[in-house]
Design a protein around this nucleic acid. Structure first.
Length: 513
DNA sequence: AAAAAAG
């Protein structure tokens, strides 16, 4: 059997790999590392979760042992489509490069130039970038690309989706023709093949069998719903609480605004929740992701920024709050669970308007997905918003006399505290008109909530009831439009309010994880 | 019907 020591890697690299606990390379690593070490170009066709990152990081480390970086002349360059992916690759260099003294510079948007400039000035052996920020540095004249010996283009198909290809071409033109190029893509549509033909010279093609579209260890279910968000949120809450083995979950929405809204809703309902989307400021993105990885946050509401590539191990559940518009995104999203042969569950909320997207998904994965509680034809009449400010309607009192079905719970009128702040504002200073101005109010309220820790009931995963009510703006969704009007001006998405550096204890799951 | 990335 092939081991890492058979691949031609340097001793320093091997030691770090062994220390990290690995002995057997994955297929993409076994296939790509030896030719990469011989300075061959590589065309790697592999998805995330296949060990792709190490398949370029390890040979790069070995090759970089010869030579030294010069100021403003990086020796190698890695291009990634998202900031999080770039940061993740940088972590890999830290981990496997611990026996090397290499300068690694992470050039991504959303953070200040100063530190990046300093690193470049010092001379970077490895530059890990998102395209926009790299070009920005180049245009500022801080960077000379003529010393780049190795170029890595990662997730090329996603770069294409995101319209980065012109940027990539511009960058590639700045780099000497004699470079070695390592090119990775999960899929090989014709445009990507053409791109590869242009960028690569006589490449070694390494293809690892794509995870057969969706892993068989993942239980997939469709959940019928009407299209109203309050109904979808209620169904989602119920679904989450019914899960017995929920360790952590990513909840995908199609739009950033919906990510922000669902995040607020879930946190108001006392769930341990974070959010991730591209309009959030970078420090919040980083914090949220770190909190989720550390299990400080159980639920992560995310846009498709989190669908691909991010290495979040052990996600037990994926919930699609919205059906993805592009069928491939479904595969990527539910690929966040059931990794490495573990079991996982993926639930997708489906309303009538989503059926054509579901059809496309089923066609792509070549199988029918079962409904959890009957399909759309079995759907009862739309539920009314419990969050409505109107008094109770017939049959919908706390005991729920009227229509009953599996879904019909948790739509009882909210406990008083949800409505209380409706009555306008003991909590909201009259002058406050923007969400930004409200945030400190939330933050201030936070310690109060922490003190209530002793009262929390741990039996529900991620859920904590009897929460006190620091509602800085109405929980009542009839007020949503008003809020959104504020929000639209400056929607940074959710900030991890009140969790600064540590998450209040009551937000952690007590009891079974 | 969207998201991502440069400000």
């Amino acid at each position: 059997m092939t081991t890492f020591s058979d691949l031609g890697l340097s001793q320093k690299v091997l030691t770090a790999v062994t220390d990290a606990g690995y002995t057997i390379p994955t297929p993409i690593q076994a296939g790509a590392i030896p030719p990469a070490l011989q300075r061959r170009d590589i065309l790697g066709i592999a998805q995330t979760g296949t060990g792709k990152t190490a398949s370029f990081v390890l040979p790069m480390l070995t090759l970089l042992e010869k030579g030294r970086a010069r100021a403003r002349m990086p020796r190698t360059l890695i291009l990634e489509p998202t900031r999080e992916l770039a940061a993740q690759v940088a972590e890999n260099f830290e981990k496997y490069g611990k026996n090397h003294k290499l300068n690694v510079a992470l050039l991504i948007g959303g953070v200040s130039f100063d530190e990046q400039d300093r690193k470049l000035e010092r001379g970077a052996d490895v530059l890990i970038c998102t395209p926009g920020r790299l070009l920005d540095h180049c245009e500022r004249g801080k960077l000379l690309m003529t010393g780049v010996e190795i170029l890595v283009i990662d997730e090329a198909d996603r770069m294409l989706d995101m319209g980065f290809i012109p940027d990539i071409e511009r960058i590639a033109k700045l780099i000497p023709f004699t470079r070695q190029t390592l090119f990775f893509s999960a899929t090989m549509p014709p445009e990507i093949q053409k791109l590869a033909d242009r960028f690569l010279q006589n490449p070694e093609r390494v293809e690892v069998s794509t995870r057969s579209s969706t892993a068989t260890t993942v239980t997939q279910r469709l959940v019928a719903t009407h299209s109203k968000d309050y109904e979808k949120r209620a169904i989602l809450r119920d679904l989450i609480q019914k899960q017995e083995e929920l360790k952590n979950a990513i909840i995908f929405c199609n739009r950033k605004l919906d990510v922000a809204e669902l995040y607020r809703s879930l946190s108001r309902h006392g769930f341990s929740v974070g959010a991730l989307h591209g309009d959030m400021d970078q420090s919040s993105r980083t914090k949220m992701l770190a909190g989720f990885k550390d299990n400080a946050i159980t639920l992560l509401v995310a846009s498709d920024v989190a669908a691909r590539g991010l290495d979040i191990p052990d996600v037990s559940h994926v919930f699609n709050f919205d059906v993805p518009i592009h069928a491939e995104d479904y595969v990527h999203r539910i690929g966040r669970t059931g990794r490495a042969g573990r079991s996982g569950a993926a639930f997708t909320l489906v309303s009538k308007r989503d059926t054509k997207f579901v059809d496309a998904i089923e066609k792509l994965i070549d199988k029918k997905i079962e409904w959890l509680n009957g399909d759309l034809s079995a759907l009862p009449a739309p539920m009314e918003s419990h969050e409505s400010s109107k008094p109770e309607r017939g049959g919908r009192d706390g005991k729920r006399g009227g229509r009953r079905n599996d879904r019909d719970r948790d739509y009882a009128p909210r406990p008083v505290h949800s409505h209380k702040s409706d009555t306008k504002s003991d909590d909201i200073p009259a002058a406050v008109t923007t969400v930004a101005a409200l945030e400190p109010v939330i933050a201030k309220a936070e310690p109060v909530r922490s003190e209530r820790k002793a009262e929390t009931k741990p039996q529900n995963a991620g859920r904590h009831s009897n929460r006190p009510a620091p509602q800085p703006y109405p929980a009542n969704d009839d007020n949503r439009d008003r809020r959104n009007r504020y929000r639209r001006d400056q929607d940074d998405g959710p900030t991890p309010v009140g969790f600064g550096d540590d998450i209040p204890a009551f937000m952690l799951i007590a009891g079974k994880a």
